[in-house]
């Protein structure tokens, strides 16, 4: 679905991405992992066109995204920190997005019901708790039944019940053939959800491939230990 080649980005002196090559497979859940400052969020913003590469290219279904914006109609994005226009209510926000993306296809409002958000959506977003905002954020990402969902720390701030609801939603939408890019600091969660893993360290991809392959290569029983091993010792030959 997405091919990234030799992607580079620097902010001032800081080289955030130092030549990323990565393929996101169709219909799979790809976990992007790495320590803080490894470039995960920057990479995601570049796929969305919010930040622009210094060099390199990103292709979405074979088409370069540079200069294009129509491809974003096929993406649902859940940012790490839910920052909304403060004066709007949740319902107004969703209304605005519906108006803007205005597609005839049926909307996916399943999460509103599951999170029991109806009452909360009438209140101004600034009055909502962090967790509730995160739920609104998730609703907005799934609303248009996009082909690709980019979820940056989706379960951060959610209680266990809501977190489970969201994870079930991710898995059921994957079963319908949607593609996901996920980041999280909770390795057990990523292991539960992901097919592929891309491990970023200091702006480079240290490993990209199926989760099972990473566990095989490192001879570790789970993703957390496998990643820890790559971080401390690099990939075993």
């Amino acid at each position: 679905m997405i091919e990234i080649t030799r992607l580079q980005k620097r902010f001032g002196r800081l080289e955030v991405l130092q030549g990323i090559d990565l393929t996101i497979r169709d219909g799979q859940i790809t976990a992007v992992v790495g320590p803080n400052g490894a470039g995960k969020t920057t990479l995601i913003k570049m796929i969305l066109g919010l930040a622009r590469p210094d060099t390199g290219e990103i292709r979405f279904d074979g088409q370069p995204i540079e200069g294009d914006f129509g491809y974003r109609a096929r993406i649902g994005y859940m940012p790490q920190i839910a920052r909304f226009p403060e004066n709007l209510s949740g319902a107004e926000l969703l209304g605005m997005l519906k108006d803007l993306r205005g597609r005839g296809a049926a909307l996916d409002e399943e999460l509103i019901e599951q999170f029991d958000l109806d009452d909360q959506l009438r209140k101004p977003l600034r009055t909502l708790s962090g967790g509730t905002r995160q739920k609104v954020n998730a609703v907005a990402a799934f609303l248009f039944r996009p082909d690709l969902l980019i979820l940056d720390e989706p379960t951060a701030g959610l209680d266990p019940v809501s977190s489970s609801i969201l994870k079930d939603k991710i898995l059921s939408e994957r079963a319908r053939g949607r593609t996901f890019i996920l980041t999280s600091h909770i390795m057990s969660e990523l292991e539960e959800l992901s097919d592929d893993v891309a491990f970023l360290l200091e702006g480079r991809v240290r490993f990209a491939g199926p989760v099972d392959e990473l566990k095989d290569v490192t001879r570790q029983p789970n993703l957390e230990r496998a990643i820890a091993q790559v971080m401390t010792e690099g990939l075993a030959a």
């Binding site: 969305l48 066109g49 919010l50 914006f69 129509g70 491809y71 974003r72 109609a73 993406i75 994005y77 940012p79 920052r83 909304f84 226009p85 403060e86 997005l97 803007l100 993306r101």
Partner: peptide
Amino acid sequence: NAREFTELLLAQPVSR
């Protein structure tokens, strides 16, 4: 103050 609004919309199919 409209920074959030701008970021939100730019993640949608909206050109710069």
